[in-house]
């Protein structure tokens, strides 16, 4: 596998959220606005890339790896929890509004299955550089996925798209044009489940369609 494949697999083929259904809780909870989704992505990006790097550094040193192997899961958890604490403190100090709107989901990055999953499945058996590329790809794939959900939810529920702080795109004129109100349901919990379910179904439909086409092509050629 070359670097490019390694990078892009996290975004499309093995997208952690839409394909493997990992890290569901924050993706449903913090997608009420695009800003929250971007903040969550930053947190996950920092933790995932660094934890992949540190864990593969530990595991590629053969002496250290022998020592760590029997207790590797607790070791991973300590590494990840330390990184998450750093994120928590930095956000609390410099981005307080984001810190309070993400709330309990910042410390919960520790138990996000994507991070422990990548540590065990990839970083523990690959070189540090490859692990970093894998982490960047996976974090971006996850980020794009939650941003997609949040764009639908914020637009349909609120009529706006908040990128960061005051940088906000107001799209309520579309609702005015159609003479309807924004559908507040979409920023409530109901909307999270509904939007995610419909996006997943759309992706499955597209994937099925693609598979059928490939099968037909093979059949025609054969």
């Amino acid at each position: 596998m070359n670097n490019k494949e390694n990078f892009f697999k996290g975004i499309i083929k093995e997208n952690p959220l839409f394909v493997s259904l990992l890290g569901m809780c924050p993706s449903l909870a913090v997608t009420t606005s695009l800003e929250n989704a971007i903040g969550m992505t930053l947190g996950v990006f920092f933790v995932l890339v660094l934890s992949n790097f540190i864990i593969s550094l530990i595991m590629s040193n053969s002496k250290l790896a022998d020592l760590v192997k029997p207790v590797r899961i607790p070791v991973y958890i300590v590494v990840i929890a330390t990184l998450v604490t750093i994120v928590e403190m930095v956000m609390h100090a410099y981005l307080p509004s984001l810190y309070f709107s993400l709330g309990v989901f910042i410390p919960l990055i520790v138990v996000n299955c994507i991070i422990l999953g990548r540590a065990e499945a990839f970083a523990s058996s690959n070189k540090p550089l490859d692990s970093v590329i894998d982490g960047v790809g996976m974090a971006l794939g996850y980020g794009l996925a939650i941003m997609t959900i949040s764009i639908f939810r914020e637009f349909l529920g609120n009529g706006t798209l908040t990128v960061w702080g005051d940088l906000q795109v107001n799209l309520t004129f579309i609702f005015d044009f159609l003479k309807i109100e924004p559908i507040a349901m979409f920023v409530q919990p109901v909307g999270a489940f509904l939007t995610f379910g419909l996006i997943l179904a759309t992706i499955t439909a597209i994937a099925n369609n693609h598979k059928n086409k490939l099968a037909k092509k093979v059949a025609n050629n054969g």
């Binding site: 919990p189 509904l194 379910g197 419909l198 997943l200 099925n208």
Partner: peptide, 23 residues
């Protein structure tokens, strides 16, 4: 269930309906 909705998607839609009731 429609083919595209099999598995997780339909489960999420059902969860949405449950969430309406609970809210």
């Amino acid at each position: 269930v429609p083919k595209a909705f099999k598995g997780a998607p339909i489960a999420l839609v059902i969860a949405a309906i449950l969430a309406i009731i609970f809210s």
